[in-house]
Nucleic acid binder design. Sequence first.
DNA 1: GCAATATATGGTTAAAATAGTCTTATATTT
DNA 2: AAATATAAGACTATTTTAACCATATATTGC
Lengths: 155, 155
Amino acid sequence: MLRFTKKTEYALLSLQYIASKEGSLVSAKEIAESIGVSFEIIAKVLHLLGKSGITQSIQGAQGGYLLQRSPSMISLSDVISAIEGKPSQLVECVTSEDIDDQSCSCNVYSNCTIKDPMTVIHNMMDEMLTSITIQDFMHIPVYHTISETINTLEQ
Amino acid sequence: MLRFTKKTEYALLSLQYIASKEGSLVSAKEIAESIGVSFEIIAKVLHLLGKSGITQSIQGAQGGYLLQRSPSMISLSDVISAIEGKPSQLVECVTSEDIDDQSCSCNVYSNCTIKDPMTVIHNMMDEMLTSITIQDFMHIPVYHTISETINTLEQ
DNA sequence: GCAATATATGGTTAAAATAGTCTTATATTT
DNA sequence: AAATATAAGACTATTTTAACCATATATTGC
């Protein structure tokens, strides 16, 4: 349905929360309570973010999580990849990796006629998801067009 | 997973096929065979496209489908809305309609802190999906950035 | 009128993805 | 040793997606 998963949503909320604490260790329990979802889910999400090097975790009592790089260096694309285990794929046969070297695994049509336009769309989407970072989740007003947003982000 | 559904994919393939026939009636059977999927699915997809006024159908023998407007006036956003019955929603609480008048139906957090940035992302995505039309599915090469693509589309 | 062709529409089923919970193990601090 | 906190996998329920099946309706042409 072209929708972010709940896990991605929780990841963004968690990263936003950690970023707002600017460098101090934050526990999964604290984040879960702040967001209002179960501890287990937040722990799982933070674990996934850690495996991808987005967050750093300190085990043990008084442990917790912190960001491995600044909010402006963590893109939405990074978060989606971390949560889903792979880069986003609008269609099965087009990924961010080795675009020219990809064979269509869908066997329904021998000669795919939408792969090229789909690749264009994928690239546009990818560029967009890469341009948005956790920093943009800190305090930004609502814009209504790409150009307005790009102008603002470039300032 | 932020992926187009198969139905949307079939819809795009069907519309591309109908557009390539430039005005002549095309049957669901012909489209299904051309794409390589079952007749029933294509019939259902075409029916959905018809209900949204994208295609026009002529019933009975020698009947079929044709486009109700030119390929350049049918956006990807239109197609997704037609197939899914509603505009795309990246997150539950942000839609294209009445953005300022929407209440968050998710009850997990009383005070949603990502709605504004999500609305920005939704608007960017929406603008992108609206800017892409069936015409772009006819014969276009592969570009790799938004700016390249926008430049080309504007020519 | 009737057979053939084609769309219209709803129901059913199977598979896959998503969401959430539960359990156990491991690490660190006090 | 107890308390705190992350690590990681198993398990279940729900929802979405995908595909198929069956029947109804409309039009053409003989």
